[in-house]
Measured scan of single mutants.
Amino acid sequence: MEVRTIKVFTTVDNINLHTQVVDMSMTYGQQFGPTYLDGADVTKIKPHNSHEGKTFYVLPNDDTLRVEAFEYYHTTDPSFLGRYMSALNHTKKWKYPQVNGLTSIKWADNNCYLATALLTLQQIELKFNPPALQDAYYRARAGEAANFCALILAYCNKTVGELGDVRETMSYLFQHANLDSCKRVLNVVCKTCGQQQTTLKGVEAVMYMGTLSYEQFKKGVQIPCTCGKQATKYLVQQESPFVMMSAPPAQYELKHGTFTCASEYTGNYQCGHYKHITSKETLYCIDGALLTKSSEYKGPITDVFYKENSYTTTIK
Rank of each mutant, 00 (worst) to 15 (best):
R4I: 13
I6T: 11
V12E: 06
V12L: 04
D13C: 06
I15S: 12
I15E: 07
N16Q: 07
L17A: 08
Q20H: 14
Q20A: 10
S25I: 15
T27Q: 12
G29L: 07
F32D: 08
T35F: 04
Y36M: 04
D38Q: 10
A40W: 12
V42Y: 12
V42E: 02
T43C: 09
T43F: 09
K44P: 11
K44T: 12
I45V: 12
K46F: 09
P47C: 05
P47S: 05
P47W: 04
N49P: 13
N49R: 12
N49D: 14
S50Q: 14
H51V: 03
K54Y: 14
L59W: 11
N61V: 10
D62M: 03
D62R: 11
L65V: 09
R66M: 13
V67H: 14
V67G: 15
A69E: 03
F70M: 14
F70H: 06
Y72P: 04
H74Y: 06
F80I: 01
F80S: 02
F80Y: 06
L81C: 08
G82F: 14
R83L: 08
M85G: 02
S86G: 10
L88C: 04
N89G: 13
K92V: 07
K92D: 02
K92T: 11
K93N: 14
W94Y: 01
Y96P: 12
P97H: 11
V99G: 07
L102H: 14
S104K: 05
I105D: 00
I105V: 12
K106W: 00
W107G: 02
W107R: 00
A108Y: 04
D109G: 05
N110L: 00
N110S: 04
N111E: 03
N111Q: 02
C112I: 01
C112Y: 01
A117R: 04
L118Q: 03
L118W: 07
L119S: 01
L121V: 13
Q122M: 04
Q123K: 07
Q123R: 08
I124Y: 07
L126F: 15
K127Y: 05
F128M: 02
N129H: 13
P130Q: 08
P130Y: 02
A136M: 09
A136P: 03
A136L: 04
Y137L: 11
Y137G: 03
Y138V: 14
R141E: 13
A142F: 09
E144V: 07
A145S: 05
A146Q: 07
C149T: 12
C149G: 02
L151R: 03
I152P: 05
A154D: 00
Y155R: 05
C156N: 03
C156T: 11
C156P: 05
N157P: 00
K158N: 02
K158T: 04
V160H: 10
G161W: 06
E162S: 06
E162D: 15
L163S: 12
L163H: 07
G164Y: 00
V166W: 06
M170D: 03
M170Q: 03
S171P: 02
L173Y: 00
F174R: 04
F174D: 09
Q175W: 03
Q175R: 12
Q175L: 09
H176I: 06
R184E: 00
L186V: 15
L186K: 04
K191L: 11
K191D: 03
C193V: 03
Q195P: 12
Q197Y: 04
T198Q: 13
L200H: 14
L200P: 01
E204A: 14
E204L: 09
M207L: 00
Y208S: 09
Y208E: 10
M209V: 15
M209N: 15
G210N: 01
L212V: 09
L212F: 07
Y214W: 10
Q216L: 06
K219C: 07
G220D: 03
G220C: 03
V221K: 06
V221F: 11
V221M: 08
Q222P: 11
C225G: 03
T226A: 14
C227R: 00
G228P: 01
G228S: 02
K229M: 12
A231E: 00
T232F: 09
L235R: 05
V236A: 09
Q237T: 10
E239D: 09
S240A: 05
V243A: 03
V243T: 02
V243N: 00
M244L: 05
M245W: 05
M245I: 03
Y252H: 10
E253I: 11
L254P: 02
K255R: 10
K255M: 09
H256N: 15
G257K: 03
T258K: 10
C261T: 02
S263V: 13
E264M: 05
E264W: 04
Y265S: 05
Y265L: 01
G267Y: 15
G272F: 00
H273P: 02
H273I: 07
Y274E: 01
Y274A: 04
K275P: 03
H276P: 00
H276F: 13
I277E: 08
T278R: 06
S279K: 02
S279E: 05
S279P: 05
T282E: 14
L283S: 03
Y284F: 08
C285L: 10
G288Q: 12
L290V: 14
S294G: 08
K298I: 15
K298Q: 08
T302G: 00
D303T: 04
V304C: 02
V304Q: 06
F305R: 01
K307P: 14
K307Y: 00
S310C: 08
T313Y: 15
T313A: 15
T314N: 15
T314K: 15
I315Q: 15
